[in-house]
Design a protein around this nucleic acid. Sequence first.
DNA 1: TATCAACACGAAACCGTTTTCGTAGTTTTC
DNA 2: GAAAACTACGAAAACGGTTTCGTGTTGATA
Lengths: 343, 343
Amino acid sequence: MKRKITLKQIARELEVSISTVSKALKDSDEISKDTKQKVKAFAKLYNYRPNTIALSLKNRKTKNIGVVIPDIVHHFFTTVFRGIEKYANEHGYNVVVCVSDESYEKEVFNMELLANGSIDGFIMSVSAETQQKNDFSHLKEVMEQGFPLVLFDRVIDEINCDKVVMNDERIAYDATAKMLAEGKKKIALVTTESYFNVSEKRAEGYKRALLDHGAEYDKDLTLVLPFKGIEESYIETFVENQNFDGVLCVNEIFAVLFMAATQKKGLRVPEDVSVIGFTDGLLSRYSTPTLTTVAQHGERMGERAAEMLIEKLENEIGFDEEEVYRTEIIEATLIERGSTINK
Amino acid sequence: MKRKITLKQIARELEVSISTVSKALKDSDEISKDTKQKVKAFAKLYNYRPNTIALSLKNRKTKNIGVVIPDIVHHFFTTVFRGIEKYANEHGYNVVVCVSDESYEKEVFNMELLANGSIDGFIMSVSAETQQKNDFSHLKEVMEQGFPLVLFDRVIDEINCDKVVMNDERIAYDATAKMLAEGKKKIALVTTESYFNVSEKRAEGYKRALLDHGAEYDKDLTLVLPFKGIEESYIETFVENQNFDGVLCVNEIFAVLFMAATQKKGLRVPEDVSVIGFTDGLLSRYSTPTLTTVAQHGERMGERAAEMLIEKLENEIGFDEEEVYRTEIIEATLIERGSTINK
DNA sequence: TATCAACACGAAACCGTTTTCGTAGTTTTC
DNA sequence: GAAAACTACGAAAACGGTTTCGTGTTGATA
């Protein structure tokens, strides 16, 4: 086991002081040309790299950012993560990920762990349980400790920090309006239980579109599915008993299940029923017909979140300068595919 | 910005030495009961937590493990990562992820970065480009530096380290045999270019099953698709021109595309054509019909990889003890769904 | 020749811990 | 009453860097 070489060893070997080696490697003009060359040559030969941990301790910066997400086996979060990792890496940061698994306790635990020196700032999307409990003291805590925090997607209004969100309400409006424009009259909504503020916003956009276009909002046309353990039968029962000619689903799994159920019933997509989902994942791209869906541009969200965080990290805020927080809206776009009638 | 409290501050506040504080918090019996209580109370009040970075420097252990994978927006890698993260977290380790994006250069760069003190060991799956170039000096390098390394899925024979793999050959054999047992005669194979050793092994299993069961191996029934930018037309052309009644696809995207193409041609799945894919992702679960597929148990692979790595990390190898490397095989299983004829 | 700046380098502090070792002060022992 | 043995604590080194501040040696200047 060949230990990595340190300044101390180089210094001893070359019979100079540690400071000299350090300065020589930094091309300080305190050091003579001769010595610099000697040191650099030696360092290169032994492939010297400064120890990250020592630097972290000295600089009180780890160059690590902590990402806390509810789930990783999930297309949206994965793409956001991709964006974060990409941007971070390009800017000299590493990313340490903790998965809260939708659990409040794990979320708190992980954040405390990371806050003990492992990272310089947080990017996160809160867990379902946290949203339900409505307890955000752990977020306040890390902010008070001076950690910059960027929330994305599942954000918390009462926490004052940088945020990256999607215009859920508007895109749901647009999606609904699109189906109305196709001539559809009875548009259903398939959503999750309401403690997810994103689902709620989508529902609002859906309603507003109906009312704006003179369609009536029928409560019976909204199907609320549980967060975990979706039973296909819920959907099939709904499809069996309700009359509709379009549907907006808050994710692609619901969309593809709904589509399958309507087809099974003998209805054609999109001729008889238009279907629009959220999340442009594999399901949307490879279903039959392909799904018209809302692309959330997760990667861009991740990039922006990372950008905002790193900006905060690098621009040490002046003393008594007022901290200013931004909320960035990433515009979702509707991708038209085979499950709607497109011109 | 409230800095986290340090031993030094507690010491000053309580008018004792730093050593005393440190020992008191560790319940050392060098310290009197009184002092211990005083210190502990104060520490609890100010919510003292030892600084991770300082500990890392002191102990030369970061309690971080580095994960380098080719892609994160990919069901299989995501599940493996999930397993790693889960096991690591349960055992007091954090995970820092770097995505190589299938690029040799990024892979090398990221590993060098991580090797400068950020992590204690690596878990990785090599990039496509690395496999093509057949250059593994960066892996040898980190091993020589004393970092334990666990490879999974895309492993390298010439690198001597712990490995976690799937029995690709055998499960491909089983999948093919299953279709033959259904009475299918002409089984096609849809695979990727061959520098992926996993694809190669799957192809071998496929061939062996054909020969073992007295079916003939027809080269024309193998469709090789490029790694990036699959054109649907490649598949459609193949489906149009070849005669087959079963197909084994090396991933679920190929499987679902193939299924769509055969259905479009008017063939029924599974009556006319049986389809089996690899990867038990959303596509397999929600396609119509649902896909019979090979479950790779990525999560278990990740857990095992993490377990192997952490075991190496914690059991400092005795001096001159011979290092022993293991290759663990995670048994894949065939999940029977609607795209094959099951009894 | 005394003075001074420039040059080239080293000592030491610091980041926050842990841990070894030394040592006052007290108690026990004979 | 002196030596031995505890007790309870502190000083200092170490992990691997960076950086400030000296300082000894030159050569130039007055």
